[in-house]
């Protein structure tokens, strides 16, 4: 391993007949990172993951995992990855423990070691109670966890998860996210999703993909900050209107403010600071000192759609 990256992708191109799915894709992922590939359907997330998991080759460019080329040293790469494809295909006629044991043996583990690891991942993925059930009889949430357990069973360095929470109910999504987050201590994780809150909750870094290109590569927090460079803050405060106006008019840290009537005695204040400063602590401190009730204090949040629009517009402007 020359550069210390777990994943290193350079100028990756993938063509399907006349359709180009990936356009000179380049990115890298360090060890221990949880990185989210965020993009709409058809953005090229699954193609990237299939190339990284050695299932299919790239048309051009290079990709390596733990320093091994995914095309020329695919055996070494496959030993080091745990991959859960989109839709998580599983054989319905096998029992959970039997399937995980089969997969562990297939991944080269000894009989004794595979038994120990299967027990460990059953526990880790909360599957012990259904370990003797047929996979075909399990709920979608349990099946998803079986897929995760399979990806984890040989204790791989890199875990690649393609849409791990698709089709799950909110409780199942929460438990799968918690599980993924717990992997960060020992593994590098690359996951794909088209849900922004998913990457915000689980990933330390996000790569936004659109039409086979990476549009943005940053932490979820920074992406939100880019969307809101002025750092606009919204606060719901119960206070006499005159006192509120007087305070905001005299406050040197803000460049603009707006007060709108809210429910009951509350006013909704939108505050824009000078030079992107974070106003939240000051607003809270002021309300506390003046004994005003404060029931909401937040920086403006944006949806995936907003970020896409923002990033694509920004890219187009740069091109022209």
């Amino acid at each position: 391993m020359e550069n210390g990256f777990m994943i290193d992708v350079a100028n990756l191109v993938k063509d399907y007949a006349s359709y180009r799915a990936l356009h000179n894709l380049s990115f890298s992922v360090g060890r221990g990172e949880i990185v989210g590939l965020l993009g709409r359907n058809g953005a090229g997330k699954s193609s990237t993951m299939r190339i990284l998991s050695c299932f299919m080759p790239a048309t051009a460019g290079t990709a390596s995992v733990a320093g091994f080329d995914v095309f020329t040293e695919s055996y070494e790469v496959r030993r080091r990855i745990g991959y859960m494809p989109e839709n998580n295909p599983l054989p319905p006629e096998m029992r959970v423990r039997e399937y995980l044991k089969f997969r562990a043996r297939l991944k080269g583990m000894t009989r004794v070691h595979s038994r120990q690891r299967v027990d460990a991942v059953l526990e880790q993925c909360s599957l012990t109670e259904v370990s003797r059930k047929l996979i075909g009889h399990l709920s979608k949430g349990f099946r998803q966890r079986v897929g995760l357990a399979d990806a984890l069973v040989h204790d791989p360095e890199l875990i690649i998860l393609d849409e791990p929470t698709i089709g799950l109910d909110p409780n199942q999504i929460r438990s799968v996210r918690a599980l993924i987050k717990s992997l960060a201590q020992k593994h590098t994780v690359l996951l794909s999703t088209h849900i922004l809150p998913e990457v915000e909750m689980t990933c330390g870094r996000v790569l936004i993909m659109e039409q086979g290109r990476i549009l943005a590569d940053d932490t979820p927090e920074n992406l939100q900050n880019h969307m809101n460079p002025e750092g606009m803050v919204r606060a719901e405060i119960a206070a006499p209107l005159e006192a509120l106006q007087e305070w905001l008019a005299d406050w040197a840290s803000i460049s603009r403010y707006d007060i709108a009537p809210g429910q009951g005695e509350y006013f909704v204040c939108s505050l824009t600071p000078h030079e992107g400063a974070d106003l939240r602590e000051s607003v809270y401190g002021e309300c506390r000192d003046r004994h005003w009730n404060l029931r909401e204090l937040t920086r403006a949040r944006f949806s995936l759609e907003d970020i896409f629009v923002h990033v694509t517009r920004h890219n187009r402007e740069e091109e022209h």
Binding site: R50, S53, C54, F55, Y75, R78, R79, I81, Y83, M84, P85, N87, P89, L90, P91, R103, L106, K107, G108, D150
Partner: peptide, 14 residues
């Protein structure tokens, strides 16, 4: 058809 071909071929088997 079921997609298990993908999980099979991404394990270290030739």
């Amino acid at each position: 058809d079921t997609g298990t071909f993908e999980t099979l071929m991404t394990t270290p088997v030739s």
